[in-house]
């Protein structure tokens, strides 16, 4: 049974599609050179899906972008979470690393793109580097905050029971900090997509950003729309997958359950 909200939502989506059709195909108020009609959009989708565009089929481009985001994201997690844990664990590490962070943090990840291209060229390595940079900072900051927000009595109880250092990190600190760590990961993931699309727009040979870039140069609005929708679907799918992982990982956490 769909509620009132769902019904209005469906109506809105139908309304937007109808308006799109009315403005482009029926009346031509919006010219095809600015925004594609539904049939043009469909034709472009079929074209890139079957024959390919910008050097590959849609699936090739999408999977390539997905692969880069996942790789950069994993590298960022693998480096960011341990650093955050360490900074949360040791006040000295925090004090020593903070100044470096203060300098790097305000530089938007996108500003690393020209440098990454100079260092690593237009290939995959440069993209992974900028994705790593953009996802690294949120994962460090949130892991750090997660460790600092742990209730002191939990730590004191564990220490009183003589828990060894390593088990302290893996069994107490990392799990207790994980809700905030996941908040950081969500932010990291969004940042990763933004950065990847930008990096691929600036220079690439394959990927969704490259499709957008070619479509822009070819003045091909229908393909731009296809590219944008692909970016949206990929962003949604990865966010959804991360939420699934989060639910699994935090199944023990009563507070996180709805």
């Amino acid at each position: 049974m769909i509620g009132r909200r769902g019904l209005i939502g469906l109506g809105t989506v139908a309304g937007v599609i109808a308006l799109w059709f009315a403005l482009t195909t029926l009346t031509g108020i919006v010219s095809g050179a600015r925004f594609p009609s539904p049939s043009e959009f469909w034709a472009s989708l079929v074209q890139i899906w079957t024959r390919g565009y910008a050097g590959g089929q849609l699936l090739t481009h999408a999977l390539h972008s997905l692969k880069l985001v996942v790789m950069g994201f994993l590298v960022a997690i693998a480096t960011g979470i341990p650093l955050g844990l360490w900074m949360g664990w040791s006040r000295r590490a925090e004090a020593a690393i903070n100044p470096v962070f203060l300098v790097i943090r305000p530089i938007p990840p996108l500003a690393w793109i020209p440098l990454a291209i100079l260092w690593l060229g237009l290939g995959d390595a440069a993209k992974i580097m900028v994705i790593w940079f953009s996802a690294f900072v949120p994962s460090v900051i949130n892991t750090f905050a997660g460790v600092r927000n742990i209730d002191r009595p939990i730590l004191e109880a564990a220490r009183m029971l003589g828990t060894p250092r390593w088990r302290m990190v893996t069994e107490i600190i990392a799990p207790a900090a994980s809700p905030l760590i996941f908040t950081g990961l969500r932010l990291s993931l969004q940042a990763s997509w933004t950065t990847l699309v930008a990096a691929e727009l600036v220079g690439a040979m394959v990927g969704v950003g490259f499709v957008l870039n070619m479509a822009q140069q070819d003045l091909y609005p229908a393909m731009i729309l296809v590219g944008m929708i692909t970016v949206g679907i990929l962003g949604w799918a990865t966010t959804f997958a991360l939420a699934r992982v989060e639910r699994q990982a935090l199944a023990w956490n009563v507070a996180a359950r709805d």
Binding site: R4, T12, V13
Partner: peptide, 22 residues
């Protein structure tokens, strides 16, 4: 709210940079 939210949710996942060509 009920009208704008679905549109907004649909657009939310598109990275702002992807608007560059348009």
């Amino acid at each position: 709210d009920d009208i704008v939210t679905p549109i907004f949710d649909g657009l939310r996942f598109i990275a702002p940079i992807a608007w560059v060509p348009f």
